[in-house]
């Protein structure tokens, strides 16, 4: 039954992604001009002038002279064969540019997600069970501060503290000597050492809101009759809360997977620039500014796919966790 549900969901992803590809393509085409206009303007800044013939030549080479739908179908056709096209700006295949950054982005996203859960879960449960205690007030206050502080500001503060007080190497995800080195255990360790700062910066607001969600949900569940039933069975207070109300209040936690992936890629651009993280965000911003259409298109498409996959994962987890969720 579950397998059929998953297959069905994956099947529905096909028309959805197709629609997304159209929207993505149109979005990228929406600003006036194309990559060449940007390119010519850039050359103009350094007083170089291209003559009309070579512009036409370039336009033909990039396929920008064709009608929109031809360009679209050529793009999609290549995509289906696994070819994301060439980046105009970098003069490199898009796939070469993207995969390394996407891998780091996904690593960072999941590290942040785990951090968020690990912090928000116990604090949220504590706040609910000890409602209106000092600890609850502290958690609530910190939570609101976390929600209200812009990420990039937090990034700057933490970087300052890190550098001045601990002499830590902040910024980026690798030390200089590992930046272009092949993967090794030492490099992984280096990554872990650098990961904490962006993870905290990116995770705080999500943590804060999850604490609030967990607290509110658990408060609703704590006084349900089934909790009394469990208590009357002789279960200890700790296990009783963990096994029954927390379990029911867990659903929104699972649902966060769905939005955390796209949010980290697109929402964290400013933070990523401040922290000079080699993730997908800054590169995507650049590609959009330069109207580097294949690179930008690949990013938009990947983001959408990640969102869809994230939703699928969280839906499957929900079905596994809560038998009341029907999946047909």
């Amino acid at each position: 039954m579950l397998l059929r549900y998953i297959l069905k969901r994956i099947f529905w992803m096909i028309p959805f992604l197709f629609a997304v590809s159209i929207v993505a393509f149109l979005l990228i085409q929406a600003p006036p001009g194309d990559y060449l206009t940007t390119y010519i303007a850039k050359l103009g800044e350094s007083n170089e002038v291209l003559d009309q013939a070579s512009i036409e030549n370039l336009r033909e080479r990039f396929g920008l002279d064709k009608p929109l739908y031809v360009q679209y179908f050529r793009w999609v056709g290549n995509l289906l064969q696994g070819d994301f096209g060439m980046s105009f700006e970098w003069r490199q295949p898009v796939s070469d540019l993207i995969w390394g950054r996407m891998a780091l982005t996904v690593t960072l996203s999941f590290a942040t997600l785990l951090f968020t859960w690990a912090v928000a879960f116990p604090i949220g449960v504590y706040s609910a069970v000890r409602k209106y205690s000092i600890g609850d007030y502290v958690a609530t206050t910190l939570g609101f501060i976390g929600l209200a502080t812009p990420n990039f500001l937090l990034a700057l503060i933490l970087m300052y503290i890190g550098v001045v007080h601990f002499g830590a190497d902040v910024g980026g995800l690798f030390s200089n000597e590992y930046k272009n080195a092949p993967w090794s255990w030492a490099k992984v360790w280096d990554l872990i050492q650098h990961l904490w700062l962006p993870v905290i910066v990116l995770g705080t607001s999500a943590t804060a809101s999850l604490i609030r969600i967990m607290r509110a949900n658990l408060l609703d569940e704590l006084h349900r009759p089934y909790v009394d039933t469990a208590r009357a069975k002789g279960l200890s207070e700790f296990w009783l809360i963990m096994k029954y109300p927390v379990r029911v209040a867990l659903n929104p936690f699972i649902s966060t997977i769905g939005w955390v992936l796209p949010n980290l890629v697109s929402g964290a651009v400013v933070t990523a620039i401040v922290l000079s993280l080699p993730t997908a965000g800054p590169l995507m911003l650049q590609a959009l500014l330069a109207q580097d259409m294949y690179l930008a298109g690949a990013f938009v498409l990947l983001l959408s796919s990640l969102t869809v996959v994230g939703m699928l994962i969280s839906d499957i987890l929900l079905v596994l966790l809560d038998p009341r969720v029907k999946y047909d």
Partner: peptide
């Protein structure tokens, strides 16, 4: 208890 509906855990 009174409410057989809500006195049993819905997820176990």
């Amino acid at each position: 208890f009174q409410e057989p509906m809500s006195s049993l855990s819905p997820v176990h």
